[in-house]
């Protein structure tokens, strides 16, 4: 009996230790990935300073010239456009779903969102090339510029925007429904309309949560590779308008992984690109958390 119970306790301890190691290892994985990418990208710093790499737009791997500016700019551009396009749609439809709509309508929209969320990114890419790119080059661009292939910053932004819609909406719906009924009652019973209540109470109350959701969607958008790669044109030049091609960081990595081993320092440059993505995502997560924490303390 006692040996049995000590056996059980031992088993409990061993399992605890094992689970502890798995947990710690997964935590270490973050460090490991960061460190690994950093070490791999160190060689490039021997020839170029970090700031030079970031500020230069000369990209000639054969000549050992690695200017990351076009890629960073490309990534920022399309991410920005994606969020600008998706945020209002997501906020409005999430408000509609939580504050205004009847439940049968909700079911329909949620089904649509589930499908949208489930569509693989390569399919978004295909859709982009079949629909968005021709639309831009034939319908939209002629109003603004003389000629555009359609494979542009804007195409990347639109496709990316649609891709982050389901994530944003489901996060927003979750956040809005978490607001207790009393807040709505309080505002409505003062004679405010539903929209006034949404605008002044719900949006205000959930502001930190909205920030968090946007941060999450941003970091998802930063790293999106294949869909964006298929519609952006991938020219390593600084884009000057929405109708120029661009070349985001993830696309750079994906397009060149095959040849990177044959050109000196190329591998290091691509790993630096990956490291930059990693750092951006890391900073976004950490700082948005800090912001949220502070705002929450202020409001609560």
């Amino acid at each position: 009996m006692s040996s049995n119970s000590s056996y059980r306790i031992l088993k409990n301890k061993i399992a605890g230790g094992l689970m502890f190691s798995i947990t710690v290892f997964s935590v270490l994985l973050v460090v490991l990935i960061g460190l690994g990418l950093y070490l791999k990208s160190v060689p490039i710093f021997e020839h170029n300073s970090f700031w030079h790499l970031i500020k230069s737009s000369e990209w000639r791997p054969g000549n050992n010239q690695f200017g990351f500016l076009p890629f960073i700019a490309g990534t920022l551009w399309i991410t920005l456009i994606a969020v600008i396009l998706a945020l209002p749609i997501a906020l409005l439809s999430a408000l509609f779903l939580t504050e205004f709509s009847k439940s049968y309508l909700k079911k329909w929209v949620f089904t649509a969102l589930d499908i949208l969320a489930g569509i693989p990114s390569v399919v978004y890419g295909v859709w982009g090339t079949l629909f968005i790119v021709p639309w831009i080059s034939e319908k939209l661009a002629p109003h603004f510029v003389e000629y555009s292939t359609g494979y542009t910053v804007l195409a990347g932004g639109i496709v990316l925007g649609v891709m982050i819609l389901p994530l944003l909406i489901s996060l927003f719906v979750e956040i809005f429904s978490a607001v207790p009924r009393e807040f709505r009652d309080a505002s409505l019973s003062l004679g405010a309309t539903k929209w006034q209540t949404s605008k002044h109470v719900i949006l205000r109350k959930t502001f930190p949560g909205i920030l968090a959701a946007v941060a999450l969607a941003l970091s998802r958008a930063f790293g999106e590779t294949i869909a964006v790669l298929m519609v952006c044109g991938n020219l390593p030049l600084l884009p000057h308008s929405l109708f120029d091609s661009c070349y985001p960081l993830p696309a750079l990595i994906a397009n060149n992984y095959g040849e990177m081993l044959s050109v000196p320092l190329y591998e290091s440059a691509l790993m630096l690109a990956a490291f930059l993505l990693f750092i951006v995502v890391f900073i976004f997560n950490a700082s948005s958390r800090a912001v949220i924490y502070r705002i929450e303390r202020k409001f609560k």
Partner: peptide, 26 residues
Amino acid sequence: LAYIARLAFDVLFGIPSIVYGAFAFT
């Protein structure tokens, strides 16, 4: 530990698959 672990998984959750790919590749 739980706090740090959750934070770490949040970060891991956000890491783009291309970065995982590049890391695994090296």
